[in-house]
């Protein structure tokens, strides 16, 4: 009685150990994503399994942002194939640094279905970053430049908030974000991202910004812009001081934002 069961158990194990479909993760020869070079590096091979475990349901097995859940959510998952990323410390149009991708994966994106993957550990995150880079040939031809320099944050004052409000109006921010910054400007319902998906301007009064709540996080968005969205870079139209004033105006919109009340920058 026992021997046939043992033999069959062994056969069953052998049968189960075979790869079974495109989404299987065991093969060291990874699938070639559309429009990219084969996965060859060890981190990318490991990262493929991490991607399939954690990321695939939204970003899709082709990295095109068309996972099974993508149709059900308003803020569409990133399509990695173009090498275009919103949340960067690099200038507008540039590739992000690994540190930028690490920050997004580690902390998540507030108000979206991108959770914080802090718990899975830095090794897993590094590996999946290596794999994400295989989806776009841009990572073969371009190098991300250095991060922009963010000057020290000046003190948050009533005056800086007032100046920031003026810059908000002058820069026509209200056209999308609305007079009260609720994300309800005249153009709010007409905006689309580079992929043709409807995109909604952010409600800045929530007290949370998608990419992080610190003053530096908000400052960075003004200077780098959000690639792939209608949110431009203002690096050529506002000075560093004005950018900080604008940060302080946004911070004035909710008590949840932490503010720099210190006298020194």
């Amino acid at each position: 009685m026992k021997r046939p069961i043992q033999i069959l158990l062994a056969l069953s194990l052998l049968a189960l150990a075979r790869p079974s479909g495109a989404q299987e993760a065991s093969s060291p020869v990874a699938r070639t994503p559309v429009g990219s070079a084969p996965v060859v590096s060890a981190p990318a091979i490991r990262g493929k399994v991490v991607y399939e475990r954690f990321c695939l349901s939204c970003h899709g097995d082709l990295g095109n942002g068309a996972g099974e859940f993508a149709d059900h959510i308003a803020v569409k998952p990133r399509d990695y194939r173009q090498g275009t990323f919103k949340w960067r410390s690099t200038p507008s149009g540039a590739l992000p640094l690994d540190a930028d991708l690490e920050k997004t994966i580690r902390d998540g994106i507030y108000g979206t279905y991108m959770p914080s993957w802090y718990a899975i550990g830095k090794g897993n995150r590094s590996d999946v970053i290596a794999y994400i880079k295989t989806f776009s040939p841009r990572w073969k031809t371009d190098q991300p430049p250095a991060a922009i320099t963010i000057p020290p944050e000046p003190s948050y004052t009533d005056e800086s908030v007032k100046r920031g409000r003026a810059i908000y109006e002058r820069s026509n921010c209200a056209q999308c974000h609305g007079q009260s910054a609720l994300g309800d400007g005249p153009s709010a319902h007409e905006l689309k991202d580079d992929w043709g998906n409807p995109i909604v301007p952010y409600d800045l009064t929530q007290g949370h910004i998608k990419c992080g709540d610190t003053g530096a996080d908000i400052y960075r968005v003004f200077i780098t812009g959000l690639n792939g969205t209608p949110m431009p870079s203002y690096t050529d139209s506002i000075s560093n001081d004005e950018a900080w004033d604008l940060v302080h105006y946004i911070q004035s919109l909710s008590a949840l934002y932490s503010k720099n009340y210190s006298k020194k920058p």
Partner: peptide
């Protein structure tokens, strides 16, 4: 068995994540 179908219980439905997450 057929190739893996795409699909996720309650938390998976809510957050759009696979069971493996």
């Amino acid at each position: 068995a057929p190739p893996p179908a795409r699909a996720i219980p309650a938390f998976a439905r809510k957050y759009g994540l696979r069971c493996t997450s």
